[in-house]
Design a protein around this nucleic acid. Sequence first.
DNA 1: GCGTCCAGGTCTACC
DNA 2: GGTAGACCTGGACGC
Length: 292
Amino acid sequence: MTIQIPSGFNFRTTVNSHGWYDLPPFRSNDTMTLLQTVISLTPKKHVTITIRETGSVLTITNDRTIRLTRTEQERIKNIVRSMLRMDEQFSKFYSLCKKEPHLRWVLKRGAGRILRSPTVFEDVVKMMFTTNCSWALTKIQTVQLTTKLGKRTVENFFSFPPPETIARQTEHWLRRELSCGYRAPYLLKLCNDLTNNTIELESMRHSDLPTEELYWKLRSIKGIGHYAAGNILKLLGRYDYLGIDSWVRTRFSEIHTKGRKVSDAHIEKHYDRYGSWRGLVCLMEVTSDWHG
DNA sequence: GCGTCCAGGTCTACC
DNA sequence: GGTAGACCTGGACGC
């Protein structure tokens, strides 16, 4: 399968936009020139895909033993476009960056697109796993979740388990097997609510609701606070919130205040002038050193 | 190898 | 509305 690359799109910069490429089922290589993950087409059909940039197209390959219908191939292509944010409009953001000397690199590197998972559910669970712990623990929780509850594919990858599979476990089991500690009841409640249709996540990527309403919808999920909601919103294409964590605080003080610690209110105020793009401007600034 | 301390974000009870 | 303390884990550190 191939996808035509839109102008201004940069595959490597998108894969390296944040830590998601490092959390299973995602996998990448040292040079970030390929991205692999598992797409769950049906409860029993899980396909490992490999995405590479080859000239002016992205090439998507999968194991030849798995036959895909034309409809399934189209679905995979749409999911890849969505994960890599290929159809989102960044022209207004780039005009803004053009006016700021310290953000001109963003255009040169084709930055701004933030890698997201095939589903909102996967993004929300992973974001919950980033709260109040080190990256090492975030990774442990995600690895355990996928290997213990996901489905193994031909290439020895594991799919991200659906909410109903997680909802069948006990809180005790989740605590013990995933090392997710006090997050276990939050994860269980989220999965139960999704299974019972008490809440709905997937439509959020195409929602017409104002960003603030989406923010409060996310905040109604136990375990999703101000930081997590702000960052999930970025994965929904809304950049009004900063999603400040300890790392952003450190990077901000290194860049703007010679290492002097400042309050979150100070950081919020600094990015106010960028309006609805402030969250993305903040992310670009704190990750600028990742892109040379 | 063991014990102690700390960092990390969210929730809840309390003022 | 603001704040303190609990939640749980891995990692750093001292012994």
